[in-house]
Design a protein around this nucleic acid. Structure first.
Lengths: 166, 166
DNA sequence: AAATATTGGTTATAAATCATAACTAATTAT
DNA sequence: ATAATTAGTTATGATTTATAACCAATATTT
């Protein structure tokens, strides 16, 4: 049997687009779902005037008090000049503070402020809801499997190219 | 018991960065692994002078002979003006051809050329190897589970925001 | 200890990516 | 016939990401 052919002659691609090759690629599905999630995440963060990167920075500063800018940049795989912009914005909103390190007077220790922590708490509630909403269909077990798979992919990839987190 | 504390006093974040909060988020792992894969994919495509979007366009044109530019743009979730650039580049390399449609003289039918198909074949061999390399650790069953999970996430998300494929 | 190299942070700027507005020509709807 | 919509295009703007060069401070070398 050949492939199904539409009755009305041959306008093969005017109706439904055929994704058969792309559908074979894991990377394609990953990219599509990730774009979806990131777009929804940014919408989720908008009310807090945060974005993927600024929220991620907040989280890492909460989890790593007195972290340095360069360590933060490395953790997020963001170029240092771009990190400056993110940190400036958070600091000018008084969500975080810069403190000169006594031990190394080149560097700053970044800390969350009270206002920063409050915003972090509220935003994180929203982010958890966003996560829950988008992964509701997955039972806990498949969710864990997915995460394990992602970790594996990352680990393998790290041996080759150098990933960035944008 | 409190959290573990390093012996040598309190420089909590000078050594290893703590990702505990981020690690809870499925989206975080998805984004990281996807960035990894996309970076490796682009490296894979570089020898063919193709990129994610131009390769994707090639694939879709192969799978959808006589597809129109606007349909292609919609399929890839790329703005039409940006699609023009991609198609121009492919056409100027004579990998695809534009043909005026007799039935609708505004539109073009895009087709793969012989050279285009050859490049497509070679690039796809490389892409499959890249996929195989990065997902080798996953047994077929988990790989399928991951893909199903991605489809679910996308479906849920589509009810809310509108994803883009970049 | 002096000279040199490296690091943390910064500025300026360039490159790359992505989105919007406005237009022509052709088609479809009123 | 007129109006509205669609396909493709151009020009351009906004956003995002990367690069080069610099200062001050620290670390390394000799």
């Amino acid at each position: 049997m050949g492939k199904a052919v539409s009755k009305k002659g041959e306008q093969p691609s005017v109706d439904k687009t055929n994704f058969e090759t792309l559908n074979e690629f894991t990377g394609y599905h990953l990219k599509r779902a990730t774009n979806m999630m990131m777009s929804d995440l940014n919408a989720t963060l908008k009310p807090f005037e945060l974005r993927l990167l600024s929220y991620t920075a907040l989280v890492l500063i909460v989890d790593n008090p007195r972290i340095r800018m360069s360590q933060l940049a490395a953790a997020m795989d963001v170029e240092r000049p771009n990190m400056v912009v993110i940190v400036d914005a958070l600091e000018s909103r008084e969500l975080i503070s810069r403190q000169r390190l006594e031990t190394d007077r080149r560097a700053y220790a970044l800390n969350i402020t009270l206002a920063g922590r409050r915003l972090y708490e509220k935003a994180t509630v929203a982010v958890r809801a966003h996560e829950e909403r988008l992964t509701r269909q997955l039972d806990a077990q498949t969710r864990d499997k997915v995460i394990e798979a992602m970790k594996l992919i990352r680990k393998i990839g790290e041996l080759r190219t150098h990933e960035t987190y944008n």
